[in-house]
């Protein structure tokens, strides 16, 4: 039984080896490598704000906030600027405009649709 099985096994192996491999088109390697080169170029990600710039921004924020914290400026009201805004009364030009519910729903769905785009883009890029 074992002997018989071995013979069939040997002949199978011989036949499959004889069938050999098939070659893809001649420009297969070139095609693959050109896409790979594109992907590799994309992979090198350069951040818009470099690490040094982040450190600098961090230091500035820290410095400004510590100065504000340490130096007492009790007579200067931080909220003073808002008083000025309150004094200026601007008439709302849209106060008379009435928006129907349908328009609100429409705008709502448009908003949702726009929010979906980045998610869909990411999903499609992945597949």
């Amino acid at each position: 039984m074992e002997e018989r099985y071995k013979k069939i096994d040997d002949i199978s192996k011989k036949l499959i080896k004889e069938a050999g491999l098939q070659q893809p088109s001649t420009d297969f390697l070139t095609n693959v490598m050109s896409v790979v080169a594109q992907k590799a170029a994309k992979k090198i990600y350069k951040p818009l704000i470099s690490k040094m710039a982040w450190v600098f921004i961090g230091l500035v924020v820290l410095l400004v906030s510590s100065v504000l914290f340490i130096v007492p400026l009790s007579h200067v009201s931080f909220f003073g600027i808002f008083d000025a805004i309150e004094k200026v009364s601007i008439h709302n030009p849209f106060s008379e405009v009435k928006v129907s519910k349908i328009t609100i729903y429409g705008l709502g769905f448009l908003g949702l649709f726009l929010v979906q785009i980045p998610f869909l883009k990411r999903h499609l890029n992945r597949t």
Binding site: L21, Q22, Q23, L29, V32, M33, V36, A40
Partner: peptide
Amino acid sequence: AGDTMAFGYLVEKYQDFVFTIAV
């Protein structure tokens, strides 16, 4: 390490078998 040409060696080595399996 960033040497894309090294990947070319792997493609060349395995392209026939990978293609045969796909066929």
